[in-house]
Amino acid sequence: MKAVLGILLATILAACAVPGPREPDRYFILDAGITAPRSGAPVVVAPTTAAGFYDTQDIAYSRAPGTREYYRFNRWTERPQRSIHAQLAARLGGGPARDGLRLDTNLDEIYHDASEQPGTARIAITAELVDPAGRTVLARRTFSRSVPAASYDAPGAVHGFNRALAALIGDIEAWVAVEARPKAR
């Protein structure tokens, strides 16, 4: 009888230990809203690389300076550098540029600065304009943008990321237009 009671008690305790339902996973698209290529001479846009911590589908945030963490239930639909590359290529590629210049980009940072509410969406990208024929780097610059998050959560941060990326691609576009001018045909 004691053994039966013991097993029953253990079963009840085990059932209590099982966690209940949690917030479902949500996936967000990093979308700057690029619709058409620019009018200037196209450049070859190489795949965007990313710093190791951001080379993931997890959305990063920071609650204190110098620290980074990942959201647990909120993720990108694909790694952010892939989205950034696709949108850079859509805006700056636009056609064959086999003899033209190449744009190399690296995603240095993309995180929700959540040290204060509602926080800020921060993106930093380093761009290099390369002449493949001469194997020389013609220009190099780091671009960064910060946009207030719409709310103190992942959806609000993603809204900020999208706006920040749109502005950042505009910055890169303007920079490429200036730097590529001597090589444009």
Binding site: E23, Y61, Y71
Partner: peptide, 26 residues
Amino acid sequence: AGRMRDPREVIYGPPEGGLGPGEKTR
């Protein structure tokens, strides 16, 4: 691989204080 980074979390949930802004277990 990323999803399996810590399978224990799948069963027992994220650690205390490990949730992002706005995230909560129900």
